[in-house]
């Protein structure tokens, strides 16, 4: 998330809007956004509806055995078609903003 915030201007300049999605309820995200100074949208999916639709449910992996999202990144073009997917195999390894920018430059 920090990497995205750092590269937000560049992403926006390429016409790309980053959006974060997790099971965190809106007020938890509001605290996070304020603390960290994030200026892109954070969406709440506490009932894992979208997360389920994207087949990203990590069952029982959250606090108190709640279902949460596994880390994943998707770049969609303006028609909503997936242009790039990053499903990490290791929880510690995440997509880097440069990867997104490289693909993003190819979007029309």
């Amino acid at each position: 998330m920090r990497g995205i915030q750092k590269n937000l201007e560049q992403l926006n300049a390429e016409g790309i809007r980053p959006v974060a999605i997790s099971v965190d309820p809106p007020d938890a995200s509001r605290n996070l956004v304020q603390q960290q100074g994030y200026t892109f949208p954070f969406l709440a999916d506490p009932n894992v509806e979208a997360i389920k639709r994207y087949d990203l449910v990590h069952a029982g992996a959250g606090e108190g055995g709640h279902d949460i999202a596994r880390p994943a990144e998707f770049l969609l073009d303006s028609t909503g078609t997936v242009r790039w997917v990053h499903l990490t195999e290791n929880y510690w390894v995440r997509a880097r903003p440069e990867q997104v920018l490289d693909v993003g430059r190819l979007l029309k």
Binding site: M1, R17, S22, Y54, E73, L75
Partner: peptide, 22 residues
């Protein structure tokens, strides 16, 4: 996908799913 970014139509949306901190 449709709300303009800096006055221009967006070219794309990056969805970042994360585990959450809550």
């Amino acid at each position: 996908l449709s709300t303009p970014i800096n006055g221009k139509a967006p070219k794309g949306v990056l969805l970042v799913f994360y585990r959450g901190y809550w």
